[in-house]
Structures are given as C-alpha cells and as structure tokens.
Amino acid sequence: MKTIIVNLDIMMARRRISLGELANRVGITQANLSILKNNKAKAIRFSTLEALCRELDCQPADLLSYEEEDSPR
C-alpha cells in the first residue's frame, strides 16, 4: 500500500547531523523527532516542516515522498 514516507534519516545522513542536534535546532524533543524519523507520526505541522527545511537546507519534497510502504530506498 502506498503511503507518505518521511526521508528524514537520509537528509540527516547527507547533512551529517545527529538526531539530538537537529532536535535542538528545530526546537522539538528528540522523542518527537524520533517518531518522525521512524515514520510513526500521523501528521506533521507546517511549522515543524518549515523548521526542518530551514535547518537541513532542503525542500519539503526532499523530506517527504509517496511510495510503497516496504519499498527499498
């Protein structure tokens, strides 16, 4: 089944930034960022997406994709 996948781990690896550091910069807890990274989140606020794009210097499309749940990335 197709679903929205958060590619936060890929962008974090590209920017070489840790979960804790990104959480600090974005202003959310590590636990919440971990939920987002592991695709457990049900929704994402525009403000969070905006902060992530700002800190990772990327577009929303770099963070989100619409694909098969178990497709290899």
């Binding site: 960022l33 939920i35 989140a41 929704a43 994402i44």
Partner: peptide, 8 residues
Amino acid sequence: AEENSLTI
C-alpha cells in the same frame, strides 16, 4: 488523542 500526540 492518539492522532494529536502523533502530530509533530
């Protein structure tokens, strides 16, 4: 409530 808590 679950949806709310899983909205980041």
